[in-house]
Simulated assay, not measured.
Amino acid sequence: MDIDAFVTAHQPTWNRLERLVRRRRELNGAEIDELVDLYQRVATHLSIVRSASRDPMLIGRLSALVARARATVTGAHAPAWREFVKFWTVSFPVVVYQTRRWWLWTAVAFAVVSVLFGAWVAGNPEVRAAIGTPEEIRQLVEHDFADYYRENPAGSFATHVWLNNAWVAAQCIASAVLMGLPIPWILYSNAANVGVSGGLMIDAGRGDVFFGLITPHGLLELTAVLLAAAAGMRVGWAVVAPGHRPRGQVLAEQGRAVMTVVVGLIVVLLVAGLIEGLVTPSPLPTWARIGIGVLAEAAFLGYVLVFGRRAALAGETGDIENAPDYAPAS
């Protein structure tokens, strides 16, 4: 291709687009339509030039012109700080609020399984004998359970806890691709572990130690894990019962909602990890440690209720604006 002839033929088009971009705030309707048309044509010209010429000046000029025209056509993006504020005041809380029914029933099921296991272990010597020898159980209830929170430096322990909790939540989120089917087993296993530990501690007369150590961080930690599980199962249910809308559209919406939950839970689990690493093993009185955990839980639930309900009433869904539910294919 003769690049000089190509430039001569299309130079007026490029100049016209450049003038329209400079006058973008003064354009009338016909000129806006012309701007869009010229932007598409010049983008094609740029593609042709890139494949047929190695002139860096020409490629650079057309690239800059196309970029400026694209910004004019699509409009400026909101500043990053606005996106950040919107995420924490609209997107995350409204998705959590919309998941509340799944979240509530998941929490109830977890609590029931934990209590049943705890009562079963505390009330049956045969079950305790199957778990371990009397010496092993005595070591657990008198030393190991409490030492777990105190044997490592607070900072490294908080990081370890955060990563461990994030791993459990990630398992629940990842299970969404399997229609959420593994999630009940994951929750059952964790609920059984909590129930068994509680049953052993209560039977040994150390129920106050158990609740004094597990409550400060456990409330927020379990809330976050149960939220991840609820979000994952909600995606699975969207595959089974999409309602009157296309299954692909509903699945796309729920998938994006899960990713919103993932980002939000990173911070929630970080807070829970800091409480477990810094507050739970601290020398504060038990009532103070439990009070901090209750305040953290109340603050999170209040945050979701206030911001999530407000966003839901305003018609927000937390979904990406104008997000395509189907990818075009040729």
Rank of each mutant, 00 (worst) to 15 (best):
W81F: 14
H45A: 09
P242S: 07
V271S: 08
A146H: 01
M1T: 14
V267I: 14
P79T: 11
A129I: 02
V95F: 01
V95S: 05
R50H: 13
T286D: 12
L219R: 00
E316L: 10
N322D: 11
V294M: 03
P216H: 10
R23N: 10
D203G: 00
M1K: 09
A166G: 07
E83G: 09
Y188W: 12
V177F: 11
A191H: 05
D203Y: 14
R24T: 09
T280G: 02
A230I: 06
F117E: 04
A71H: 04
N193I: 10
E221I: 09
A176V: 06
G60D: 15
A327C: 04
V235D: 00
R245N: 03
D4K: 08
L35R: 06
L35W: 01
A229I: 01
M233E: 03
R150G: 11
T89F: 12
G123D: 12
F92Y: 12
A9R: 15
N28G: 15
T13M: 04
G255A: 08
V90P: 00
W102G: 15
L104Y: 13
L17D: 02
V225Y: 07
A76R: 11
W237I: 15
V42Q: 06
E142A: 02
W102D: 10
A130G: 14
P125W: 02
V268W: 00
S282N: 11
V73Y: 10
G236I: 12
G75A: 06
T215I: 13
V250N: 07
L116N: 12
T99V: 04
A119Q: 00
L187F: 01
P125M: 02
L284P: 02
P56Q: 06
L220A: 07
I48Q: 01
I183P: 11
R245K: 15
P242T: 11
V141T: 14
P153G: 14
A80W: 08
F110E: 04
G205Q: 00
T317V: 00
P56F: 04
T286F: 06
P246Q: 04
Y39I: 02
T260R: 15
A122R: 04
L181E: 04
W105G: 01
Q11M: 00
L270G: 15
R138V: 01
F110M: 07
V235W: 06
W162R: 03
S47H: 13
P184T: 11
H10E: 07
G308D: 01
W287N: 07
L27P: 05
R22Y: 03
G255I: 08
V112P: 08
G29L: 05
H143W: 05
A5I: 05
P153S: 13
V112W: 04
H45L: 11
V21N: 09
N322E: 14
Y148T: 12
L227W: 01
D319L: 15
G277Y: 07
A229L: 11
G218C: 02
V115W: 10
F211P: 01
W81C: 04
A299D: 06
W14L: 03
A298I: 11
P324L: 09
G248T: 08
L65N: 09
V250W: 02
W167V: 04
E26Q: 10
A176E: 02
P125A: 08
